[in-house]
Design a protein around this nucleic acid. Sequence first.
RNA 1: GGAGAGGUAGCGAAGUCCGGCCGUAACGCGCUCGACUCGAAAUCGAGUUACGGGUACCCCCCGUACGUGGGUUCGAAUCCCACCCUCUCCGCCA
Length: 449
Amino acid sequence: MNLPFISAATCCIHRGAKNHSGDDTMLDLKLMQKNPELVRESLKRRGSTLDVQEFLTMDEKRKALIAEVEELKAERNKAGGEIARLKREKQDASEIMERMAVVSARVKELDGELNEVEAAEKEWLMAVPNIPHEDVPFGESEDDNPDVRYWGEKPTFDFAPKEHWELGAELDGLDFERAAKLTGSRFCVQKGWAARLERALAQFMLDTHVTEHGYTEMVVPTIVNRTTMTGTGQLPKFEEDLFKLENWEYYMIPTAEVPLTNLYSGEVLDEDQFPILFCAHTPCYRSEAGSYGKDTKGLIRQHQFYKVEMVNFAHPDHSYQALENMTACAETILKKLKLPYRVIELCTGDIGFSAAKTYDIEVWLPGQDKYREISSCSNCEDFQARRANIKFQPKDSKKKLYAHTLNGSGLAVGRTLVAVLENYQQADGSLVIPEALRPYMGGLEVVTP
RNA sequence: GGAGAGGUAGCGAAGUCCGGCCGUAACGCGCUCGACUCGAAAUCGAGUUACGGGUACCCCCCGUACGUGGGUUCGAAUCCCACCCUCUCCGCCA
């Protein structure tokens, strides 16, 4: 059976009724064929060791097999009509039938080989990361990410500012010990004001995006199937980062980007629907495999945290403007909270698998004396749209095109709570509630020990 | 958990019992273009799947796809097996 690469394939076991007919090809097959140098160069810039030649060899083999098998199939189809005619006319067709038995056996053989090559090719393609935009600066690691801009004044303290977990515990808001008892490490119980602050932040963020930025608020599943995880690029490569339900091909989302972006998988959008702006407040689950020893204390790196996520579907001509807009939306939250931050651009060595260009927003944490990531905004161009098969119908052409998808945190709620704690702490051990949040906190201005 | 119905183009839907002239897929809707009209509606006419391969522009030719995967057969939307999804009723449940 012939598995088309760019369209209606079905590499995944789980396939929704109608809207998951998407192929899960990662890169444009044609791009690989026509311009392998570009891909080779892109992989090199990312520091990947994937060998483009390996793919090209497979593709040659695939084409040769297709040529052979299709010739036989054409012959078989012709003979089929002939057999039908002879039988209708009550004539003997056994000679053709015998010959076709041989042809069919050969077809079956070749189809088997073809399937193997296509599966291997697909596996290879699925492991290729997106091609970074040509403007993305070269770099080998996060140390090479250039600053883009800074905002706000770092607060000054006439005492040694505490880290958030210390302050949170002293104010009886954060309880890591009991969370460890309930589950294990990297979980937290939030109590009283800290629980409400979490809710206030989420609500404040959602309200801002909905009423000021034009986003549509969504509630989506936070457990999704394998196809959905593949559509946005979490699978097949990063399975170990995910929590998976036992005995199910279901996964807990590491970000609402996954369900929000896949909302339109297998669909064709209207050009004038753009830009489509969705946001959602969801829990996020990450195994944090490989991060042993990193941020072991506090709320920074948890197995479960809440995030308000923004997802855009954009016209290819406007997706980079959309990325600037989305980043500004995330920054707005920090500005309203009066939290100092900086924006950096991820270099080729640090950019995520699915992204073509990414801005990270880092908030200032006085307790840690560092900027820490609180948002990441990416333009994935058509990378996810290909995998999830999200197209749109341009007005001025017949050909359907892939949409561009973007995603960004707006913001990670837990980390925002950390930033509020560390930036708004007072000498007497109390915590001032940022003005923007007070309406959501029943007017509360200060949390005291 | 029990019983039943269903999955075919952008949508609805025929075809499945009795395998082949039924997949550029009947019929209807929608959409595009044209005719009529001052213009519009109505009406009439024409067009309208995706991908892969040959030719890496178009045309054209060939192949594949009727939820998914397998089986039977010279040949499968149609017959057989397994699975997925949707809907209805019953039971249970926040």
